[in-house]
Each structure stands twice: as C-alpha cells, then as structure tokens.
Design a protein around this nucleic acid. Structure first.
Lengths: 342, 342
DNA sequence: TTCCGGCAGTTGAACGTTCAAATTATGCGG
DNA sequence: CCGCATAATTTGAACGTTCAACTGCCGGAA
C-alpha cells in the first residue's frame, strides 16, 4: 500500500503550509491566485483527496445523508422507494454528499437509529419517507434541530418542515378528465379506507374532476384495503350496482390490476389504443406491473422528487439558518401514462 | 444542544483514564471486572456512543460498506436489487456496519468512485452486483487489496475472490422437473443470447433436467433479448414448430409474461391450481409482476444472499488474512414458487 | 531479601484536518 | 523612506479516539 497522500504531503510538494492547502480547498479567495494554482497543481499531481474523517472531526459535518430502505412490502407497490433512493444517491453525488442506508421496523426503532447515527456518524441530515398522521419521527428530529426533509407531506401540520410530495389529487384528477374526454360519465373510484393522507388525497382529485364536469360522485366509489384480490372484489361491487360504472380510477396499481381482472381486460403488454366498449381502468404509481400489463397509470416523478429533497437539504446545510425559497414546500405533479386500458 | 458526551466525560464519571474506557470498549479482557462494570455503568448512565470519525482516524476503519444502487432498468426485473440492498442493510446493522450507496454509469465510472470513496471515506469493503465477463472492477479491487464480495459469480476466474450467487441452473432444473412430473415431455426454453453467464447457466439447468429424463432438448429452445414483446415472439415461435412444446421455462419473468400472453393464459392473480390443457409457463426471479399475474416463477433467496455477503465480509474484516470457511464461495439454491401457470 | 514476570491501569503521542490567532509580506499615502 | 492598513501565509491548538510505551503493584522463585 503506497503511503497515504495527506494535506501535509501536498503542502510540502507545493512549498506552502498545510493551512494554505486547506484554504485553497475551503476558502480559495484567501489565497493569492498564483499560490492557489501551485497548490492545485500539487493536488492534481499527487491525486490528493481530503480525508473525510479528519475533516469531520474538526467541523462536525459528515456529508452523509441517511435514508431508510424498507422491506419490499406487498411487492407490487415496492420499487417506488427503490427508484427514489437511486435518484437520491445520484443527486447527492455532485453535491459531494453520500447516502447512508438504515432499516427500522417501526417509528420507535427508527428514532433509536437516529440517536445512534447522529452520535456515532454525525449524520448531517435525514430523508424520511412514508410520512403518516401523528408521525413522531418529525417532531423528534425537529426538537433536536436535526435537518431533514420528508418525501411525503406532513399530514398534520402543513408548514412545519421542508417537504417534497407528489400531488396525488392532481394525478387522479387528470386521470378522471382523461376518461371524461373519452366520453365516460360514470367513472368509479376504488380507494383505501379514509384516514390515510395519501388515499384521501387521491380520492379528492377524482371527486373534484367529476364535480368540475357537473357529475355527482355519490355512489360511484368503493373502499377497500390495498391488494389485487381486494381490487377484484371492489370492481365487481362497482359493476353490479344499479347504475354500473364504465371506467374506474384506482388508488394503486394493485387495485387496478384486480379491477382489470374483474372486468376481463388483462392481457399483458400489447401496445395499441384502448379497446372500445371495455371498462376503462387507471392505476396509480406506474409500477413495473402496469408497464408489463399495459395498464394506464399515473407516474410519480421520483427522480425529480429526489433531486428536490436533496436541494432542500443542501441549501439548509450549506447555508445554515437560511430558508429555502418557497419555504421548502414542494408539490410535484404526476403524469398520466396512457396505455391499453384507458 | 447539550455538550457532547465523549470518552473523556465517561472517564471522569467512572474515575478512570480515557484509555481504560477505550479498553472496556475494545479489549474488555484487559480490564478488571469491577472496573469494567463501573465504566459500563458510566457509559449507560451518560448514553455515551463512540465517535466513529475519531475512531476511524486512528484505526483507518470506517465500518462502512459501499454498494451500488442501479437505475430501475427495464423495470420488470428491477426490485431484485432493492430487496438485496434491504437485506444487506439489515444484515449490516447487528455487525455494526452500515451501507453507503453510490451510483455509476459504467465500470470505469465505478472504479473512479472506488478511488474517491476509499481515499475520502476509508470504505472498509465493497459489495458488487451484476458481475459479468471481463469485469474490470474485481481485478482493480483485488490488485489494491480492498476487501469485497460479489453477488454473482466471477464468470471468468472461479476461485479468485469471495462471492455469493444463486444457482440458476438448479432453479431451471427444478422448474423443468416440476413440469416433467406434471406429465409434460416437450418442455421448451426461452433464453438470452449465449455469452451472458447468468443466461447460459439458467439454460444449462433446463437442458440437464431434460437429459436426466432421457429427452433430447434439441429444437426445444428459442433465443432472444429480454422483454415482454420478445417473449411473445419467442413463444409463438416455439408453438408453431413441427412438434410444438406444451410447457415453457423462461429466463426471466419478462419473457414469461410474454409467453403467457402468446399462449393466452394471462389473467391476474386468481389463486388456484393450474388449468389443465393450457401451455404451462414458468418465469425467473419471482418479481412483483409474477406475484400479481399468478405466474409460477423461481425465487432467489435474496435476503439470505445478502446475509452471506455480509458474513463473508465481516470475517474478512474482523480477522484480516483469514479465509472464510469454504473459501468464501457460496452458491444458494433458489426455490420454485408454484402458481397458476404451471 | 532480591529480582522477575505479569496484571491493571496511566501517560503521551499520533491520526488529518480546520479554527483562531499570530506573523510576515505588500501596497499606499504622506 | 517611514508608518500603517490590509492581504497572504504560518503557527499552535484542538477535535475524540487508539496505539505503544510506561509505571506501580503483587506474588512467587532464587
């Protein structure tokens, strides 16, 4: 193993003190241009890279951002987090941050992990996913002044911290309008039990778009837990009512896949226009399953969301005390991906 | 912010020197039991946690393991890496390691990232995924004596470094035997173009199982790139030959989904026994799509693979120079998940 | 008694960096 | 050509930990 190149090596090579090398790296304006160049040349020639641990000891900053990786839950809706994490890691690199993973079974375990990571690793910031009502994690972090962003709105106290989210209502509204344009009037909705922020939000977009068109959404929706089998049942329910629906917007791709089966429209991946006369179905999240089956779905801009999360953190970290523009509340609009089923 | 609790705080509190505290943590046998207990009590009372950066400065070890997170490629086959990473993070925690993410567009970029992470963060080890022929990454790391494991065999030089992989051939062989038991004789295979280690391996298991049963596999297979549309075409090919197949084993769930469509057997998620008379289809990887569609598939034990990866690294790191038992070459057997399609 | 070896614990230095303060160099007006 | 302000650079200390060497102490063999 070759001797490690430290700031001292560079200093000797460039005939300056170590502090000057440090200044070139951190406060270049303090150094005369020609000296700066000489030092820079030495850095390049030696392939010097600042040691993060040593730097961290002095500054208390690790340039590490922690994010939780969840178990692939029901499977069909997983892979969203995956893409988000990838975006996060990719956005972090150019800002010279890195993403550290952790797992936690529940909120309490997650908070215990925060303690560990903060004291042992000096984590600079956290990215939280899957926010929910009465989220103890955010208050814990906020109380201690730890920088963090959530991917997902704070469902209880809107303005309390920076967040990035995708406008589910806008997505379902667009899906509904898409169906209205295609001539549908009786457009159903399969959603989750009230109380989940995400689910209520998505339902509201569908209701709003119908109201816009002067249609009463009463009796057009079904409520069920997430899952393919649940989707089948809910769709059958909607189809056997007094006035059956001709199209269904779903809260998830799982439900949509179930609906698709119930309406007899599931063959995988034949590109082409939607078949006329069929019950139209639209899912949510544009999962691999939707792509495979040809299910029209609503795609979240996950890469963009990750980039925004990182930008929010970076402004907070690099200029402490400064509020990001717009108070750091970012709502992104998802996009409808039309396929065979609508 | 409360004052930081350092080893010095603990030492004062327990009336010993800092070195004794350090010994309690790292070499307890050097400390008399009663002193040890006193120090331990102080640690607990103060909630002390060793600062990783300072520790790292002295020891050169970061307790950080780096792994690449890839973009969700074709989508349908993604989510495997996701589950693997989750397993990795989960297995790392009890061993007091953490997983650091990085991204890289190609092997060259990845090697550049190694340099950066090694010199800046003192990464202890790397976990490589997607090994392939002529993999420059492994040689680069090996040359520099950097500890690493690959998830995926080294396809060129079998014994060169520790690895964990899933026995694809065993998987396809089991799938094939499953079909043989169900009475099928003409069992086709849809695979990838020769040259990819993984693809060749999977094909060989199918061929071997047929040979076992005294069946000539000649003319029973199709070769194509990965993808749903490709699967459709390949399956049609197999079905229009002189002696059409009655069952198909596929190299991936994407191909299988295509095959399923070509054979008219794709409705999602109705549990129950396979329909008699239908062309049987078996996929590979047990992706969410397979679960959703009811496709019989071969599941890789990803959590187990991750655990093994970590164990291999941990033995290597905690006892330098020691070879793990079995020379660190671990081949896991995947499991057939029977569903509707076979 | 003297000396030695081993155990328990302490001391001082070092890891590589940045901060704060001190020193030296440079430019400018009188 | 001096004095002074400011720019440029250096010096010394510190961050929290572990390593290597050292000091006492006790028990047993010579």
């Amino acid at each position: 193993m070759a001797d490690r190149v430290t700031i001292t090596t560079v200093a000797r090579h460039a005939q300056v003190s170590v502090q000057t090398v440090s200044n070139v790296l951190n406060s270049p304006h303090l150094v005369r241009p020609e000296t700066r160049q000489r030092v820079q040349d030495a850095i390049d020639a030696l392939g010097y890279r600042a040691n993060q641990a040593a730097r961290q000891m002095r500054t208390g900053r690790s340039r590490l951002i922690a994010a939780r990786i969840e178990p692939a839950q029901d499977g069909i809706n997983g892979s969203i987090l995956d893409r988000f994490l990838h975006g996060l890691a990719e956005a972090a690199a150019p800002a010279r941050y890195r993403v550290l993973l952790y797992t936690a079974a529940d909120d309490a375990a997650e908070i215990a992990t925060y303690e560990d990571m903060l004291s042992a690793y000096d984590i600079d910031a956290f990215v939280l996913t899957s926010t929910h009502h009465a989220d103890t994690r955010t208050t814990w972090l906020a109380e201690r002044g730890v920088p963090f962003v959530t991917f997902g709105r704070p469902w209880d106290a809107p303005g309390s911290h920076p967040w990035v989210d995708v406008d589910g209502a806008a997505g379902t509204a667009e899906a509904t309008r898409h169906l209205l344009r295609a001539g549908h009037r009786r457009i159903g909705f399969i959603g989750w039990p009230p109380g989940s922020g995400v689910g209520d939000d998505r339902r509201s977009g569908w209701a709003a778009a119908l109201a816009e068109a002067g249609i009463d959404c009463h009796g057009l929706d079904a409520v069920t837990a997430d899952g393919v089998a649940e989707g089948v049942a809910a769709a059958r329910d909607l189809l056997t009512r007094a006035e059956p629906v001709t199209a269904i917007v779903c809260c998830s791709d799982s439900l949509a896949l179930g609906a698709l089966h119930a309406t007899g429209g599931a063959e995988p991946a034949v590109p082409g226009p939607p078949a006329p006369g069929r019950i139209a179905v639209i899912g949510f999240d544009d999962t691999p399953v939707a792509q495979a089956v040809g299910l029209t779905s609503i795609a979240q801009p996950l890469g963009e969301a990750a980039t925004h999360c990182l930008r929010l953190l970076a402004t907070q970290l690099d200029a402490p005390g400064s509020r990001p523009p717009g108070d750091g509340q970012i709502l992104l609009t998802p996009a409808l991906v039309p396929r065979r089923t609508a």
